[in-house]
Design a binder for these strands. Sequence first.
DNA 1: ATGTAAATGCAAACAAGTTATCATTCTGGA
DNA 2: TCCAGAATGATAACTTGTTTGCATTTACAT
Lengths: 222, 222
Amino acid sequence: MNDAAPLAGTGFIKGLPEQLRADLLARGQRRSFERGQIIQQRGDLAREFWYIERGSVQIGRYGIDGRLTLFSLIGAGDTFGELAFMGEFPRTVDAIAGTDCSLIKIGDGELQSLMESNPVMVRLLLKTMALTVQEAINLVESSRSLSVPQRLAQALLQLCGNQDNGAEVIAIQQDLADLLGVSRVSLGKALTKLQAAGLIEPGYGFVTITDRAGLKRMLASQ
Amino acid sequence: MNDAAPLAGTGFIKGLPEQLRADLLARGQRRSFERGQIIQQRGDLAREFWYIERGSVQIGRYGIDGRLTLFSLIGAGDTFGELAFMGEFPRTVDAIAGTDCSLIKIGDGELQSLMESNPVMVRLLLKTMALTVQEAINLVESSRSLSVPQRLAQALLQLCGNQDNGAEVIAIQQDLADLLGVSRVSLGKALTKLQAAGLIEPGYGFVTITDRAGLKRMLASQ
DNA sequence: ATGTAAATGCAAACAAGTTATCATTCTGGA
DNA sequence: TCCAGAATGATAACTTGTTTGCATTTACAT
């Protein structure tokens, strides 16, 4: 499979040369949000994008019934909000602070001028956008063809990044359930299964990964 | 909601000025495929893209178990295959002729040179890619929050485009089921429901839309 | 230490979708 | 006109996931 870029945190910024990235971030404006606070809302006309310096952010949609559909949980080093810039449309998802966090807000003008002054940027943007589309397609396929425990394994692998065994994924069960699009009950059962298989150890507000390779194996086997 | 661009047929070509589009298509190469024939396969290194002149194409993935996950059914005027070009990676989906069809194959070089000679192209490409991501996000949300009959209504509306009542959507139930990611049994039940509500009339190999407005209403009501 | 709110665990009734199987209907070609 | 294959309709057992309600555990602030 590919390197699991989170759906709404294209992370194009990671592809930038060190110098450019530092410049871009330096031109941004640091802001803090408390857990649960709304960072952006569906329908907003703003086109700036955000870099996560510390903490985590939930990207999703509140339905009319108040139900939350999470598309991704992103963390330090990820970016979000560039879609409205590229697409020239209002925000189409809500972003909520998953923990207390510190973000850097970068104006769309900065990105615009970077794009114009640096032709390599265009290729990079196109490429990361294409990857995002792929990621979205993978998401659709996963949710159709994998079992809940498998999808949980997939999500946990993505959330812990490249960390070794012993890594802790900070998320309450309700958030993981919203991310997978299942009820908390189903998520609980899936956690129990992975635990029984010795792959994870559920905690209070976090999940400890005890067997990364085992989680990966779950996805490979059909 | 937005104007339902099909997931894998970004249709950036529709945004091109008339003249440019004609030029681009003229430089392509016409090819025919019989129903069921494979047009492109996951893993292929090719980077050209395709314009559908006549007929329909299924975009999806064959799972290891031989199961098909359809992401979209696209038709005349749509394009597909540009993602591999932008992302610089091998094909990530399969394309199968849904009916006998006539396609125009356009080399990646053509797109490349168009991009270089015409800076507006970049904006257009980024914009349509952003729309595709949105479409994918909508797809995920729909499949989580809507019932099967509602999703069927949504799919039928998309497939019949802007046609009036009386329009026929050409697709067998199995294909519609693969598109929605449900079994044929469930799809049949959903068809029956929409028929009972007087919104559609199922046929043999097609579905007639008898009440477009009614279908739309189904999506609005929570 | 203690109280409180949040998070988790658990169980039963219920709803929705799948699988498997078989009968029936439709279409197009011989 | 008739036949064969394709598509549809229908049914029943089964699996999976949801909903609801409540008990228990944990973390944190006072």
